[in-house]
Design a protein around this nucleic acid. Structure first.
Lengths: 231, 231
DNA sequence: TGAATAGTGTCTTTCAGACAATATTCT
DNA sequence: AGAATATTGTCTGAAAGACACTATTCA
C-alpha cells in the first residue's frame, strides 16, 4: 500500500476521542494592580459563573487564530496573544473530554474599559486569587483558576527575558509606570535607581524624547520598546 | 432547561473537529553532547523516516499519562516527563488536523542504551539540528524538528530555575559531569570555580560524602539533588 | 615521581541595593 | 517659594569571570 492509498482509506473520526478548546487569560494593569477580564457564562455548564473567554478549535484555524477569535468574540477586543501551556485533566468539563490550550493576552486598560459590562468584568488579581469590586473572592468556572495561576507564573518567569509584558503599557510609557507593572507582576517592590539602570542599559527600551504632560509635577521622560516602530 | 437536561442532549462528536496527540522529545547526555532518541516510522505517512515517539490521546487518560505511554510503547523506556507547549499548525500532518501537545523526557544514557536498535536511534544534537552517527544531518518527520528546537530552548531557559535537567544525570554525579551537562545545554563553556560556587551555594545540590572510583586520577566528590531521597 | 583532574584562593569587574542629593515642573 | 516627583551620584556588598595555585589519587 502506498501513502496515497493509505490516506484515502483513513478515517479521522476514529481518532477523535477528545475535543480541543483554547482559553485565553486577558490581563491588564489598572490602579496599580494586575486585573483579569472574565466573562459570564450564558449557557450550561457553569451557567452564570465567570470564566475565561474560550472557544472550540475549528478544523481550519491555527491555535493562535483560535485564541484571537475567542478574545474577539467573547471578550470583545483584539490584542496580541501568547501560548503558555495545555491543560488536560480528565474532569475539567462535565460535557466531555476537553483539552484546553491556554493563552495570555495583555492589553492596556483603555482598550478594555469600553467593553466592560455586567457580564464582562474586570477582577483584581490578589496573587492568583480573583476578587470582585467589593473585594470578595470570585470563583471561576472549570479549572480556570488554575490556568490563571499558571499564566501569572509564566508572566513572572519571562518578565526579564521577553518583551511580552510591555503589552500592559501604552506604546510610550514612563519608567515609573514600567516599574509599577514589574512590581505588580513580581509581587514585590523594586529599587528605583537599580531598576532604571537595569532596564535602560539592557537595551530593551529607549527614550522617545517626549515627556509626560499635565502632571502637576516634574514630567517624566517617556520610553518605548526598542525595535517597535510606533509611527 | 436545567444543566442535567442540557448535558443529556449534548453531542460531543459535533465538537470533534481536530485530533490530539502527544509527542515526546526524549533527550540524554552521552559523550559530552545532548542526544535525541528518535524512532523510525513503520506506517504511513512519512514511513521510514525518523520521528519523535508520539501517540493519540485517549479519552480516559491525562496528557501526562499519554506522554508516558508514548514513551513506553514507542521508545521502550520510562522516565519523568514535562510538558512544554502545544503545536497546532494546519498542515502538520497530511492525514487530518492534528494538534500535538509536546513533552520532554530526560534520561541517563545507561537507561537508553539497552533499547537502541536500527529503528530506534540516538541522534547527536548540534544546536537544534539532528545528526546521525556519520555526522550527516537527519531530517525528522512532520514538524518534529521545530518541536525539538523548542524543547532545547525551554530546557535552556529553565536550566537554572528547575530541577528537571538533573534527569540527564545519575542520582549521584560529580560537579564536572554537572558542568558538562550545563555546557551542552547552554552551548557554551562555563567558568569552573564560578560554576561550583554558584551551584553548591544555591542549595539545589548537596555532597553525598561518596567519591568517584576507578578514575586514574584524583576522584571527585559526588553530589545529589537536594530533597531527593535516593535510598 | 609524573600525569591528570579535583578543588580553592585571589583579583577584578559587573551589577544591584541603599540612600541621598540635585533637577524640573506646576501651583 | 513649596510640593511633588524625576533623575542621578555614590557607596557598598554580592556574585561571576579570569587565572593560577594547591591537593589528591593512580600508574
Amino acid at each position: 500500500m502506498n501513502e496515497a492509498e493509505f490516506l484515502s482509506g483513513y478515517d479521522p473520526a476514529s481518532f477523535c476521542a477528545v475535543a480541543v478548546t483554547v482559553d485565553v487569560v486577558p490581563l491588564t494593569f489598572h490602579e496599580n494592580r494586575l486585573r483579569l477580564l472574565a466573562v459570564r457564562r450564558t449557557t450550561h455548564p457553569e451557567r452564570g459563573r465567570l470564566a475565561l473567554p474560550g472557544t472550540f478549535v475549528r478544523a481550519d484555524e491555527t491555535l493562535d487564530v483560535t485564541a484571537q477569535r475567542a478574545l474577539r468574540e467573547k471578550a470583545g477586543f483584539d490584542t496580541q496573544v501568547e501560548q503558555f501551556g495545555a491543560f488536560g485533566a480528565l474532569k475539567r468539563d462535565p460535557r466531555m473530554r476537553i483539552i484546553s490550550v491556554a493563552y495570555m493576552a495583555l492589553a492596556t486598560f483603555d482598550r478594555l474599559e469600553p467593553v466592560l459590562n455586567d457580564d464582562r468584568m474586570l477582577l483584581a488579581l490578589d496573587g492568583s486569587v480573583a476578587r470582585g469590586a467589593n473585594g470578595r473572592k470570585i470563583p471561576l468556572a472549570f479549572d480556570h483558576a488554575e490556568i490563571v495561576g499558571t499564566a501569572l507564573s509564566v508572566l513572572r518567569r519571562d518578565l526579564d527575558s521577553t518583551a511580552f509584558s510591555f503589552g500592559l503599557l501604552p506604546p510610550a510609557f514612563s519608567l515609573r509606570e514600567l516599574q509599577q507593572v514589574h512590581e505588580a507582576i513580581r509581587g514585590q517592590s523594586l529599587n528605583k535607581p537599580a531598576f532604571r539602570k537595569r532596564l535602560v542599559e539592557s537595551g530593551r527600551i529607549e527614550p522617545t524624547g517626549i515627556r509626560e504632560t499635565d502632571k502637576g509635577y516634574r514630567p517624566a521622560e517617556l520610553y518605548r520598546v526598542r525595535g517597535t516602530d510606533n509611527a
